[in-house]
């Protein structure tokens, strides 16, 4: 683990309020975006990422330091997202509604590109949750397979297979969409 992480954990364990602020500021955007891309809902993303920080703070004594702080926070967030998806899918909600009407999002001039992104978003949401999380951690967060394996608590080989399957499915669906157009 990094020296900075160790120092931060020591301060957190002493109850240093500013250490908690530092922890949140360092990781809030990454956790929020991961939760957003998995749930496709900004309110859920906010709740899930905040809950991840709370659980990390309250479970600090149990943190053994074998993984980095970032990996640990990602793991908590992914688990919360997986529970959330499981709950919503079990309730028959299927893929949640598109929620990309974000005014700060990059404007998409190309209508065809917009349509492809919408289709891709639906296809990503329809992936099995484990594949979805693996894909997002790999592509959007640029994490190596080894770290994703730690986050997902799965063997590295399983993570690779999940990633390959996810990309292959999306490739096929986008190809079908292009053929249809």
């Amino acid at each position: 683990m990094k020296e900075a992480d160790l120092a931060l954990i020591a301060r957190l364990r002493q109850g240093d309020q500013s250490a908690f602020d530092t922890l949140v500021r360092q990781h809030q955007k990454a956790l929020f975006r991961l939760a957003y891309r998995m749930t496709r809902n900004a309110d859920d993303a906010k709740d899930i990422s905040q809950e991840a920080f709370l659980r990390a703070y309250r479970g600090l004594e149990a943190f053994d330091g074998r993984s980095s702080l970032s990996t640990w926070l990602y793991r908590i967030t992914v688990n919360l997202c997986l529970s959330h998806l499981k709950q919503h899918r079990a309730a028959g909600e299927g893929a949640m509604p598109e929620n990309y009407a974000d005014p700060s999002a990059r404007p998409l001039e190309d209508l065809q590109e917009r349509e492809r992104l919408r289709a891709l978003s639906e296809a990503v949401a329809a992936l099995p949750p484990q594949q979805q999380a693996t894909l997002l951690l790999r592509v959007h967060h640029g994490l190596p397979y080894r770290e994703i394996a730690e986050i997902m608590e799965s063997p590295e080989g399983t993570v690779r297979v999940n990633y390959f399957h996810a990309v292959a499915k999306l490739r096929t669906q986008l190809k079908d969409l292009r053929d249809d157009v």
Binding site: Q28, Y36, R37, K46, A105, V167
Partner: peptide
């Protein structure tokens, strides 16, 4: 495909959002 996945948008909340986010977290803690 990978390039398109990387371009999937996500919100970029303003600074005020993050300040409120942190305030709420402090209260919850």
């Amino acid at each position: 495909t990978l390039s398109l996945i990387a371009r999937m948008p996500a919100p970029e909340p303003p600074e005020a959002f993050w300040q409120q986010y942190l305030r709420e977290l402090r209260q919850k803690v």
